[in-house]
Design a protein around this nucleic acid. Sequence first.
DNA 1: GCATCAGTTGCGCGGCGCGCAATATCGGAT
DNA 2: ATCCGATATTGCGCGCCGCGCAACTGATGC
Lengths: 205, 205
Amino acid sequence: MNDDAMDLRARNKQATRQAIGHAALQLAIEQGPNGLALVRVHDIAMAAGVSPRTYNNYFASREEAICSFQADQSRRVGLALRSRPVEESLEQAVIAAVIELYTDPEPDKAGLSMIMSTPELEGEALKAFSVAEGPLAEAIADRTGIAPGSGLFPAVTAAAVAGAIRVAGRHWLKPGTTDSFASILRSALSHVVPVTSPERSQEQR
Amino acid sequence: MNDDAMDLRARNKQATRQAIGHAALQLAIEQGPNGLALVRVHDIAMAAGVSPRTYNNYFASREEAICSFQADQSRRVGLALRSRPVEESLEQAVIAAVIELYTDPEPDKAGLSMIMSTPELEGEALKAFSVAEGPLAEAIADRTGIAPGSGLFPAVTAAAVAGAIRVAGRHWLKPGTTDSFASILRSALSHVVPVTSPERSQEQR
DNA sequence: GCATCAGTTGCGCGGCGCGCAATATCGGAT
DNA sequence: ATCCGATATTGCGCGCCGCGCAACTGATGC
């Protein structure tokens, strides 16, 4: 992304992190959703060209490594929303931001399918989506001008959006689905974003 | 609950499961959010009056055991919604069902706080909430008379509701919060349930 | 009562998370 | 160009954990 925003050291670090994450996901895909136990830490480390010990300087578990890409992606959703023009309504901005983020490169279907259809990965997968909620809630709060702790609207909306993205992903991966990911996302988000606007529910604390 | 609905075998099984889960949570609370690693499987098993080997006939990890109660609770949310009178609107029914389920016995604050404020437990905690989504989505689909695969509305709404419950819980646990859990839940849910009604977004696939 | 089945337990193996200390490598200032 | 401090990488080793296996025990149905 913006490599030049950090010094060389940090960039290299991030590079190995990505290498490990990528190797982990790749090996996981090879073994399929059943047989995750066969993906040994040793193999991941070798595939990434590092020692096993280094591998878990970066990740504390296979699962974490495999899902690291998704987690990193989620971390950008707050920024994506903030980068939308202020003229847009919250609804427009959220939908546009999410679609932009999740379709710029169309997600790797095999990878996404792997992490969303493997029970052992479920926990980390959910975590990956949930990391988006904090920053997203803040971005929503800023945009709507709501004081940080004055209501649950930003947090609840952020959670709902994250949930909608998850559901959209799951739907997109279903066998006979032909719609583009973008259109599915739009459809899913349309159910949650135009929620009760802040004004109407101003009554609460 | 309805102990008499199953034979002795099943009842004992469920009893040990609960015993282990309870012991695990209790020990975790004693150690606090930092020091989860000190809660050894051996201790949990002993506290539950069972061998370590038996412990993981039931659970594959500490985390799973500790969060088992929350997970079980989540599994009931679908039933709770189905038990609401059909005259109620979806909005009314969902709110009533959730509040009923989560306030009949007020949740154990210490336990909930433990599982929601411990990073290592995050994955399992999220899983615990997410298990509610499937059954809840089906219940919503049934109630609204939407064909199973005809739209994302039920699944998205279910995810949003689950998210709202999570956010409400987190808020309830915040230090200076005086509101009842019920009122917080109502407030949180009010942001997501009156979403775009199915009719308005009938356009999608 | 007896045959059967399900839940429990002891044993043991392989893998993993991680603390520690030594080493290699890199980046920046001189 | 060179040196030095910071930081990343690695090897080693310990203790715990997940789980397959096989023996045991008590509940269940005929």
